[in-house]
């Protein structure tokens, strides 16, 4: 089962936004090859096995375009300490 779903139609583009790429602690996002219908290039996940389900990308995405499916065995969120 996939850990991360990119709702690519909601995305406003990694080139102009790109917050998902920035907040991923494992640097797992890259630009996808195809534009969505609004002309934006959404991100895609490169290595889902390495994803820790920290949810950073989901929580920071301004367009609610990423859903992280958290399993019980996933640890606590990794983004908690990003405040100083």
């Amino acid at each position: 089962m996939s850990k991360v779903d990119v709702l690519s139609q909601n995305c406003k583009g990694v080139d102009q936004c790109g917050i998902c790429k920035y907040v991923c602690p494992k640097d797992l996002y890259r630009d996808s090859k195809e534009m969505n219908s609004a002309g934006y290039i959404p991100p895609e996940m490169t290595d889902e096995a390495s994803c820790t389900a920290c949810e950073n990308c989901m929580i920071y995405c301004p367009d609610m375009a990423i859903v992280v499916h958290k399993d019980a065995q996933d640890g606590p969120p990794a983004g908690e300490g990003s405040d100083d």
Partner: peptide, 13 residues
């Protein structure tokens, strides 16, 4: 209706 990368969506969530 926000521009790409706008912080409004972060606050919305």
């Amino acid at each position: 209706t926000t521009c790409p990368g706008c912080g409004n969506g972060i606050a919305t969530q």
